[in-house]
Design a protein around this nucleic acid. Sequence first.
DNA 1: ATAATTGCAAATGCTTTGCTTGTGA
DNA 2: TCACAAGCAAAGCATTTGCAATTAT
Lengths: 136, 136
Amino acid sequence: MSSDIENKFLKQGGRLTDQRKLIAKVMSESNDHPDVDELHKRVNKLDSKISIATVYRTVKLFEESGIIAKHDFKGNKSRYEQTLKEHHDHLIDINTGEITEFVNKDIEKLQKQVAAKLGYELVDHRLELYGSKIKK
Amino acid sequence: MSSDIENKFLKQGGRLTDQRKLIAKVMSESNDHPDVDELHKRVNKLDSKISIATVYRTVKLFEESGIIAKHDFKGNKSRYEQTLKEHHDHLIDINTGEITEFVNKDIEKLQKQVAAKLGYELVDHRLELYGSKIKK
DNA sequence: ATAATTGCAAATGCTTTGCTTGTGA
DNA sequence: TCACAAGCAAAGCATTTGCAATTAT
């Protein structure tokens, strides 16, 4: 079965190689936010000959096509996730690295207002919360 | 006259070298968000022998002491600013790179609420708006 | 057929570090 | 004095790239 990423990529006229198929598959099946190294490891379980350069190139390609999203959280290398769901932001556990996604429309609205007040149209934003779990 | 940064650093028991004094002075007089390269250039106008390694080391030192803040905006190298004013976030002009600072207590409050709802204590956050100037 | 893609290794860009010499308290 | 800091060049790390061989359409 072909993955979501695969289909989107084809629809955009991308050339589908075996490597790209596998990377698409792995990304599709990932519910976390793997970095390139991790992605490379996962892909290598399916085909040990795929080079990390190809993973870098593919991930960049998918990102430029809007099929996956890149995140640069503090202190980490770039992480990727499929852009399936609606837009969301991230809360990062400073102790474990665990990532929780959240959506908050009120914050979004305020951001737009802030930008407007400063004379800008909001094109993009980055909101990351860093916290530590409250033990009860 | 000694800079704010210099005083804070001394109060923390830091050893004040000529190089650190100069970097502190330059940072104190900077109202923008220079990267290490830019900082090195500015400092070199006062003393052409200061190495970029020292700038890297000093900037890290000041940051760890909470005297200056480091920012990693999308696609750029790390930038620094003195932590004088109250906490603020940044709006980056995607066309010119111009940076505007802003404060929004409502957003802060909501962030804390979001974290709490997810079972976290908010320790830190990153909020950056990317926009393009509205021409009227 | 042939333009695009791969794998490899080398190059890059920013940042850090080992080591020897210099210096602030 | 002497532990710490500076300067230099080399090393590190994530990411990109040139090139020859391979492959999708």
